[in-house]
């Protein structure tokens, strides 16, 4: 495994992607052992940081400690390393100790956004959701452009079924990153959970509009990934409208429901799209009834 390719792969790593932690660690560890990180400049040091995070994800505290020592030697008093030290503390120390540590960091530099966010996350892990929301909201009021903070807030709200608040947090994330279809999908799914079916439908269709391949004839394409999920959402919504007519008028955001003609066309189209996807993914003809189709497609999406 050569250095540049592992660096390239590692630079794509985000701390949130836990499933890839092992891969990150496997690539980062030889780099750490060989000591080559120092020679590649900033990118190498960033790799060490990511290796530390991945090691913490996997509970390999000794590796994380080694990374931390290397980083602390190179960047004394860096807020980023201090925050990483805090994350390392969270692994073994009591939450109160960590809170005190972050409070100390914020005392010396009240504008340390990452320490502030970690503090909210510690509160969340302790189960004190009210404190976590309070801290996170205060932080986002100051550092508005932190998309991940907004997503975290939305996640906290939806974990306790406050879907309307979650939608509000997500709308800020959408404003900050209007080009990201995944946030739209999350917004649509949250709106569906909140019972705002017309809004959810519009958002699902927006995701479809954003993600399908414009270059080729759209009818020939096979929906995959996020587009497939969005089509599934569209079909969920149309089915809700058909079975439960009250869903059309119960929109908290006053979104108008589609007309009956549009609805039936959309219903047909979404079924046709889902069938195409199923046929191509499984190589067998899809079930004919709607409910069966929905349940089999649900298994592909998972």
């Amino acid at each position: 495994m050569d250095l540049t390719s592992s660096l390239q792969r590692l630079s794509a790593h985000r701390p949130q992607q836990r499933q890839r932690a092992q891969e990150t660690l496997d690539r980062g560890l030889p780099l750490l052992n060989s000591g080559k990180y120092a020679r590649t400049g900033d990118e190498g040091w960033e790799t060490v940081e990511k290796t530390a995070l991945a090691a913490l994800d996997l509970g390999q505290l000794d590796v994380a400690d080694r990374c931390l020592r290397v980083l602390a030697d190179k960047f004394p008093a860096s807020p980023r390393v201090e925050c990483l030290t805090g994350i390392r503390m969270e692994a073994t120390e009591s939450p109160d100790m960590c809170l005190k540590y972050y409070d100390d960091l914020l005392e010396t530099d009240s504008s340390n956004a990452s320490a502030w966010r970690r503090k909210a996350i510690v509160y969340r892990n302790m189960g004190k959701l009210d404190k976590a929301v309070e801290e996170l909201s205060a932080m986002l009021d100051t550092f508005y452009a932190d998309v991940e903070g907004w997503l975290e807030l939305a996640d906290i709200y939806s974990s306790c079924q406050h879907y309307t608040h979650s939608l509000q947090a997500l709308s800020h994330a959408l404003l900050l990153a209007p080009q990201n279809p995944f946030y739209f999908l999350q917004f649509a799914e949250t709106a569906y959970l909140a019972g705002d079916i017309p809004l959810a439908m519009k958002m699902y269709l927006t995701v479809v509009d954003m993600t399908d391949d414009d270059d080729t004839d759209v009818l020939d394409t096979i929906p995959t990934g996020i587009t497939l999920r969005a089509w599934y959402g569209v079909m969920l919504c149309t089915q809700r409208f058909i079975t439960d007519p009250r869903a059309a008028s119960s929109s908290a955001s006053n979104t108008p429901a589609p007309s009956t003609a549009t609805l039936s066309k959309l219903d047909d189209l979404s079924k046709e799209r889902l069938r195409t996807a199923y046929l191509n993914l499984k190589n067998e003809s899809p079930p004919t009834t709607d409910s069966e189709l929905m349940s089999v497609v649900a298994t592909i999406i998972q």
Binding site: A145, L174, L175, S253
Partner: peptide, 26 residues
Amino acid sequence: IREQRALVRSQILRATSAESPIPPTY
């Protein structure tokens, strides 16, 4: 910082207003 960045908030909101990603009530 909060004071300096408050303007950015409204700028972000305004920048997307013609093709806004969020529904009217929000």
